[in-house]
Design a protein around this nucleic acid. Structure first.
Lengths: 352, 352
DNA sequence: CGACGGGCAGAGAGCGCTCTCAGGCGACCG
DNA sequence: CGGTCGCCTGAGAGCGCTCTCTGCCCGTCG
């Protein structure tokens, strides 16, 4: 295991101690600890040995105090009502963030927003300079988060395009999102290419940009899709089932469905089977997200649009890092780097 | 919203600035900021006003540097293989932790362990004094975490009884767990009280103490239960279904099942219905956890053993706080506070 | 009326680190 | 062989805060 020696109980060694042991000055030890540039190799070795022997670990607070960098990033989780973490989407994104943060030697400070009244605490914390930056997920259009973050004057990156007006104008917080619209187009085109003629859509909630973008993509291809072909869900399995039932009632002749996420697609699938409709023979079905735990478990497995969720999490961190570095170079003049739209990919399985 | 004034861009006000504005010394401002004990009311007001006007927020790093307390607690998530966060159990526990931490003005630093090789990084981080304490979840018996934590000499509390030998001896890391054994006993007794005579058990994995404790509780009541009445699962829905099928094969005459968690119970329920067995008429079924999203959604709804998961999370924080305070009072002599076992409660629904 | 004690404010010394600046020494060039 | 330049190293000044210690002022008691 770790060869880290047991430190003297109670008190951890300081730079000073290492310097004394190595027979050099504090400054030299500091240089070595921070990369060792500009120090003779012999001294570097000597210092490294002393560090090793004493089990020296730099004091983070002291370092932060002078560098004004604290090596920590806040991840803000604004819980609208229910289902947050247990959302696999979330898990993957946070994991991507965690991994990338680790690679950057930064820590992840979790800020869980406890209802609307809690935004004040969050704002205070962010404004207090405890973290170098913040990552947030824009869930709803009416979310206060963007304004809180702006007021706190802390660099931030969003996961998912925020819905507030002007967010896309470039002047605001950059975001990482997948190409919802393009992915939706691809899904619908795929259904058309299979010869389907009446393609319905089960949409997500109107206050989420991802859902709206997917509707837009659907409409891009089916310019003249009647309103009867779109049903509204809320991204849950149950809502997908309900929407499917509604669609079948309105348009018993439909021969394809594009659902805005896999969970709703699986709900739709359930209803289709209950009604004795075969998938894909009678009705072809495409989902979105490629949540493999769902998409591969259904019968038949779902054809769906994949987005690299973990990659999006990592990208959020990289974007934030870039903002941070730019800001360090010339404070104030933070020309925010553009947002990133990641590509999607159609994954063909058996349902379409 | 917040009345926090826009701070002068670029530089945040210091204690010094507040002192100057209020016409007092730095020390006095510090006293006021930290509660204001021993300061004349007139001065307190004056300082408070200056703080408000300047939008002063204490510099956390500077404070930590001298107090040696950093107001942050690590939550370690050791991911065995899959399903971590998306586990609703986890979500609830982390939420409890988050809430209690907020109440204590502490931050939650998330440490996500990326495979076995990553333990070194975790150990280094914990040993580096970045956090006041650590909270971890003991998932598997062979987990390295306890030893890592001990080596790092950082106060810690476990969620769930760790499986390593001596863990319960009191000398080690305290933990919070629910009364798995007692809950299991209650479940089985309930089934017996309904007149059932052949009560089977679907057990969880052998390397988790919670699963083992539930088996023990089952055996406490059914001293002479034949081995044919116990089947092994791994806490997943699928495994519950498999175990149920196995049990029915071995003991077609069984008239009750106690599953070690709700997920397995729902799997068992599925199989029972597929075989045309009525629940509870033919076979009574009891789960564990009271994961309401599952237990209330099944048909019939599950009778199950409830544990206060969020409360356990909060308790973990309180326990840690107590260790921290004790340690501050007399360093070294950290007589670890005892672990806590929280009660369980049988929730009667329709399945038994 | 004077001495003493308690309560409250201020001065100052760090906490452990980084980073600038000056100084020293060797090397290279004239 | 001497001067100068450049590369390393060390000294020292903070970063913003807490906390002890000293000292002042007022009230109280003898």
């Amino acid at each position: 295991m770790s060869t880290m020696p047991e430190p003297a109980p109670g008190s951890r060694p300081t730079l000073e101690a290492v310097a004394a042991r190595a027979g050099v000055s504090r400054a030299t030890v500091s240089r070595v600890v921070n990369g060792g540039a500009g120090v003779r190799q012999a001294l570097v070795d000597k210092v490294r040995r002393a560090v090793e022997e004493l089990g020296y670990v730099p004091n983070h607070a002291a370092r932060t105090l002078v560098t004004r960098r604290n090596g920590a990033v806040a991840v803000i989780i604004a819980e609208p009502e229910f289902r947050v973490f247990s959302d696999p989407f979330f898990e993957q994104q946070v994991r991507g963030i965690s991994r990338e943060l680790t690679a950057h030697d930064s820590q992840l400070v979790l800020l869980w927003v406890e209802g609307p009244g809690d935004y004040d605490r969050i704002g205070r914390y962010l404004g207090g300079g405890h973290v170098d930056g913040a990552l947030a997920f824009s869930v709803h259009n009416d979310d206060e988060l963007p304004s809180i973050i702006r007021r706190a004057q802390v660099p931030a990156v969003f996961g998912g395009r925020p819905g507030w007006p002007g967010a896309t104008a470039g002047l605001a917080v950059p975001y990482v999102d997948c190409d919802n619209r393009g992915g939706a187009r691809e899904a619908v085109r795929h259904l058309l290419s299979l010869g389907r003629e009446r393609v319905a859509h089960i949409a997500g909630p109107h206050d989420q940009t991802s859902a709206m973008d997917r509707i837009d993509g659907y409409r891009d291809v089916l310019l003249d899709a009647g309103p009867g072909l779109i049903a509204q869900g809320d991204f849950t399995e149950e809502s997908g089932a309900r929407a499917m039932a509604e669609l079948l009632e309105r348009r018993p002749d439909l021969d394809a469905v594009f659902a805005a996420n896999d969970l709703m697609a699986s709900g739709a699938l359930r209803v289709l089977r209950e009604r004795g409709l075969r998938v894909p023979e009678d009705v072809a079905l495409v989902g979105f997200d490629d949540m493999t735990s769902i998409a591969e478990a259904t019968d038949p497995p779902l054809t769906t649009v994949r987005q690299d969720i973990e990659g999006m999490g990592r990208l959020m961190v990289r974007l934030l890092t870039r903002v941070l570095n730019a800001q360090e170079a010339e404070p104030g003049a933070g020309s925010a780097p553009g947002s990133v739209i990641t590509p999607t990919e159609l994954v063909r399985r058996a349902s379409a």
